[in-house]
Design a protein around this nucleic acid. Structure first.
Length: 265
DNA sequence: TTGTGTTTTATTGCCTCC
DNA sequence: GGAGGCAATAAAACACAA
């Protein structure tokens, strides 16, 4: 039998002989023992020749060697020198081959782990994205509702200012009989007057309406001159409704607050 | 059969630790 | 300073479609 000088050649030889074992197990069954021995010896010479010629070439580890290495890797993916030597001896490999195999195996494991982590992160992101979309839809629905309620409220205030104006004209044409008594009557009926008669029509917006009760009362009852001066009324409305844009009531980035409706709070 | 992409084995260079 | 780990890379082996 020829001897191998370099460690690479030896490793190649070991690999080849192992491969030969695998192959003969598969293909040469059924021959007599003597004939089989002869075939083996002939084949071995061929493989040794092949190994000598191609000693520089890489040789893959046999299935048995890979399985044993995998099993050891599962136990511990790091090698201590004693274990490395023992494994190399058991599997007829160079200790360096074992070390290299573990190194490459760790690299493969790391790549797989990164892929797994990426998959997990991706799944989490998708779930979060779905939640976000749902919240955004709810947000839009709520914003729409607020818009509708504001429109109703605006209509109501316009109606009530008209009612008060009419009442004023009636009292003025009463030959200025008694301004004092007029005020008294008005204040007595303020709760049942035209100002509040339409409130029942917007029962769904009662809570929101309450936000404006004080403002309504002041506009209508507190200072009559203010009520009858259109430009002042306009200012009042602006303070109530033009905040629509600046308030950003249901901003996506910020939780909604009622700051624009309750400045003192 | 051959071209091409993937996997496996091995090398190199750098870094860290004892 | 040597041993060992890691990242990057080369190169051989392998798989597979055309």
């Amino acid at each position: 039998m020829k001897r191998f000088n370099s460690s690479d050649s030896l490793a190649a030889f070991i690999s080849i002989t192992s491969s030969k074992e695998d192959r003969t197990q598969n293909t040469n069954q059924g021959y007599s023992r003597d004939f089989q021995a002869m075939l083996d010896s002939l084949e071995e010479e061929d493989y040794i020749e092949e190994a000598n010629l191609g000693s520089e070439k890489k040789r893959r580890l046999t299935l048995h060697q890979v399985k044993a290495l995998e099993k050891n890797f599962e136990v511990d993916n790091k090698l201590v020198p004693e274990r490395k030597l023992k494994l190399a001896e058991e599997l007829c490999l160079q200790p360096r081959q074992v070390a290299i195999w573990f190194q490459n195996r760790r690299a493969r494991w790391k790549t797989k782990q990164l892929e797994r982590d990426y998959g997990t992160l991706k799944a989490n992101y998708e779930a979060l994205n779905l939640d976000y979309s749902n919240l955004e839809q709810k947000n839009e629905a709520l914003a729409q509702k607020v818009k509708e309620l504001k429109a109703k409220l605006r209509e109501e205030i316009v109606d009530s200012s008209h009612s008060v104006k009419e009442e004023y004209h009636v009292s003025e044409s009463d030959n200025n009989a008694s301004v004092h008594s007029q005020n008294h009557d008005f204040s007595e009926h303020k709760n049942s007057s035209a100002v509040t008669k339409d409130h029942s029509n917007v029962s769904s917006s009662n809570e929101l309406m309450n936000c404006f009760n004080l403002t309504d009362s002041r506009a209508i009852l507190g200072n009559r001159y203010q009520v009858y001066q259109p430009h002042l009324m306009k200012l009042e409305e602006q303070s109530l409704f033009s905040a629509e844009e600046s308030c950003n009531f249901f901003s996506v980035d910020q939780a909604p607050t009622l700051h624009c409706y309750f400045p003192e709070q």
